[in-house]
Amino acid sequence: MTTVARSPNMTVHEARQRLGHERSSRLTQLRAIEDGAAVADKELMTAQTAAIRRVLTEIGAAEDRVADGSYGTCLDCDGRIPVERLEILPYVRYCVSCQQRAT
């Protein structure tokens, strides 16, 4: 069983499954927004679509980190991102401390 770099409680397979589920959920949301485009507020639809596309980009970047072995490592402090955080946001780039400093 191969574990994700610096995240000993999550396997590469589990990380890929979580990312795949996130991607599927976001694509479903995107389709729902686009299907309702005729009746929706265009400004709201544009904002929602942009937000979903940003998350899809983050998911792609997380998949790249899984492939190169850096998944689960904070891109700022190089520390381990807790598995619990990755379970909630599998595409997250930063630990909580670094994320809070950035915002």
Score class of each variant (00 low, 15 high):
Glu58Val: 04
Glu14Tyr: 01
Glu43Gly: 07
Gln48Phe: 05
Gly72Trp: 01
Pro8Met: 05
Leu27Tyr: 12
Ala62Glu: 07
Asp64Arg: 08
Arg26Val: 07
Asn9Met: 03
Lys42Ile: 09
Val66Ala: 03
Leu86Glu: 06
Met10Glu: 00
Thr28Lys: 10
Cys98Met: 13
Cys95Thr: 13
Ala15Ile: 10
His21Ala: 13
Cys77Met: 13
Leu56Gln: 10
Asp76Pro: 03
Ser97Ile: 14
Ala67Phe: 05
Thr46Leu: 06
Ala37Lys: 12
Pro82Gln: 07
Ala15Glu: 01
Ile52Ala: 04
Arg65Ser: 02
Met45Cys: 05
Ala61Met: 12
Arg26Pro: 02
Glu84Pro: 02
Val12Trp: 01
Glu43Thr: 14
Ala5His: 01
Gly60Gln: 10
Ala47Leu: 13
Glu43Arg: 12
Thr49Leu: 04
Arg16Tyr: 03
Val66Arg: 03
Thr3Val: 11
Arg6Met: 03
Lys42Ala: 12
Leu44His: 09
Leu86Val: 12
Ala47Met: 04
Ala67Gly: 02
Leu86Met: 11
Ala102Tyr: 11
Glu43Ala: 11
Arg18Phe: 01
Ser97Gln: 15
Leu89Tyr: 10
Arg80Glu: 00
Gln100Ile: 14
Gly60Lys: 14
Asp78Ala: 15
Cys77Asp: 12
His21Phe: 05
Val12Ala: 02
Ala62Trp: 07
Val39Arg: 09
Ser24Asn: 10
Ala5Tyr: 00
Val55Cys: 07
Val39Tyr: 09
Val4Trp: 00
Glu43Asn: 11
Met45Ile: 05
Gln17Trp: 09
Ala47Trp: 07
Thr3Lys: 06
